[in-house]
Design a protein around this nucleic acid. Structure first.
Lengths: 353, 353
DNA sequence: AGCGCCCATGGGAACGTTCCCACAAGAGGT
DNA sequence: ACCTCTTGTGGGAACGTTCCCATGGGCGCT
């Protein structure tokens, strides 16, 4: 019953169906110039023997591997997992296979992975660049799409990211509507573009409202729960108590802020309000639930895949797509006026504007 | 400066280095029978021109694609993302590429992905089987390793999973130590093996302690937050108030249980204690933090990869590896004796034993 | 009825690599 | 000095597919 170890080839199928390998190839690849009857027969034989065309040989011959590479920081990070999932779903529709690599924010790893992808002869790559190391991409000039906020540094390549300006506007509109017109800002660490993009968006928003960032509490930190917790402790120390709100540059920091509030013996949202940005699933279960600006992770992956397909097809156009964020309202953001008096924190920063 | 679109081949490199393609191949593949001097020269030329051997051609010729397939339910699920990461890290050490596919718990998708992997000529597969559809694996007899609790249904194939019996023992030991000798049990839904494995482990534990499951509140549910929340509401209804503890068959349900406790106006852990199993990151930020039995997701992936490599190498041995779980102590599990009186729930079930 | 044309098919080359075998040159033994 | 053994190298076949080109038969057109 079981076939011998050696898998059968298209020549075997051709013989079994009584045609040449060329005809069998035409039948299986869905070419036009073949009679319906022959096509059926070949398909029947192939099906019967469980034959699958060798993708390697196919790729080698026609120069298309049907694979694309995806380099992200870490698949175990929920945001990037969602991006990957979006890309995979979009790719799966044409039978394209996605090769996922984790850079771990390490330029050297990124470079190694790039080489591996070139070796594997992927048809294109989607990269969240760690640094300015897109040399490899441009060097082998392979179709590429950039994802994430750092894409802005490479205007020559198409890119997809979340619309941080719009997302920040969403968040600040909500904060302002709730009466928090001088929120503290928690920022991530230095070199990556994300920090820059975020604080610029905040600045632009304030400018549009005839104000400046002067007087706002802006705390530098890092993109982790622990760092956010520590940073928030510093904020609370600086601000005193009162109807304070904080807008963190990612959900991890926001969750840390939640913990810091509790550490200080304060309540959220009664004493301090917290707003995050990302949309991490953990925000659903914190107490209170984290109100946050959710980035369209899955759509970013899907859209990047679409753009890449266009690039591979040679239809140029290096678009820079920014996808809209959405607000997820949970319990961590209260109302400033609900607090008895205009608190110290608000008064403290208010007179600078 | 920039090379023409057509990437250069080993023949070009050979010519440039003044050797034959055979020699160039030997130099690049690290074969032994070649002079050190020639090897250096070829390598230098290859490096200079940014040449990368065509992995497709390589694979086609020597029958090894250097790729393995990984079929998991969903990469966007943190547990499976961790498994994937573990497998990737282990694979990366030999330059093996991991192809990740999401079955979404759908047998039809699983089958499609299996076919895609066969087509891509992967050297082996790691599968978390949705159902009994391992026909495809056995049909094409490709080296395979199973992961997850359903592996037990396919004794002929090597497998890796978490040691549920040990994990449940860990959890119940803790519950018993805290004075909860009759915890309620929240179970996931039917067809999958996980439910069976879990409840059997619980039964075995009780049996070892000279008791039976009779009288325990066992609530059937599904593996989601919403389902866990609803199921916990039913448990609370049945049990009345008191020093109740609940052991859920996954963290999602446990998080739902936390919400249900709050819905009912009760406090955790003062009134009700909750224990989960999985180790989902969201459990860190719930209020209180979720005490849980964490499954060794990353190690499962890594170990499965090792086993698969052995299987590919032909070193048979279909081991069934079970990796130990660990306890993560957070706030959701209290102490029964801390409650004023022996509560109604405990008394209710106690007399059945 | 004859001519050309299209359609279905078959044969061979090619994709880029590795493997097998042959061969030359030098070393070492009798 | 001859034979053998080793070491480095080159030439060709092979992996399984698709593409290009050639061929033959049927059909419509003049």
């Amino acid at each position: 019953m079981k076939k011998p170890r050696q898998s059968l080839t298209i020549v075997d199928i051709a013989q079994l169906a009584g045609v040449s390998k060329s005809t069998a190839s035409r039948a299986l690849s869905g070419a036009t110039n073949i009679s319906a009857e022959t096509r059926e027969r070949v398909h029947a034989v192939a099906e019967k023997h469980g034959y699958q065309r060798n993708h390697l040989a196919q790729s080698l011959r026609n120069g298309r591997s049907g694979m694309i590479g995806l380099i992200i920081p870490d698949i175990a990070n929920p945001f990037w997992a969602d991006v990957a999932r979006g890309a995979q779903d979009a790719a799966g529709q044409n039978g394209t296979i996605v090769l996922i690599f984790n850079s771990d924010w390490d330029p050297e790893r990124e470079r190694q992975h790039m080489r591996a992808l070139i070796k594997a002869r992927v048809d294109g790559v989607i990269v969240n660049p760690v640094h300015d190391i897109i040399d490899e991409v441009t060097r082998f000039d392979i179709p590429a799409v950039l994802i994430g906020s750092s894409a802005i540094r490479f205007p020559a390549l198409p890119s997809v990211g979340s619309d941080i300006v719009q997302g920040v506007r969403l968040g600040l509109d909500l904060l302002f509507a709730r009466g928090f017109t001088a929120p503290a800002i928690l920022l991530g660490q230095g070199p990556r573009q994300a920090r820059e993009t975020f604080i610029n968006a905040v600045g632009r928003y304030f400018q549009a409202h005839g104000r400046s960032l002067d007087g706002l509490i802006i705390e530098d930190s890092a993109y982790s729960v622990a760092a956010g917790r520590a940073a928030m402790a510093r904020v609370l120390h600086r601000a005193g108590t009162g109807p304070l709100a904080v807008f963190a540059n990612n959900d991890q920091m926001a969750l840390g802020a939640l913990l810091a509030v509790r550490d200080a013996g304060l309540r959220c949202p009664q004493d301090v309000s917290v707003l995050g940005i990302d949309g991490t699933p953990a925000g659903e279960f914190s107490e209170p639930g984290l109100t946050t600006v959710v980035k369209p992770a899955r759509q970013i992956g899907a859209r990047a895949m679409q753009l890449l397909e266009r690039a591979i097809a040679g239809e140029a156009g290096n678009d820079h797509v920014l996808l809209a964020c959405e607000l997820e309202l949970r319990g961590s953001l209260g109302v400033a006026s609900a607090v008895a008096a205009t608190g110290a924190a608000l008064a403290h920063v208010g007179n600078h504007a």
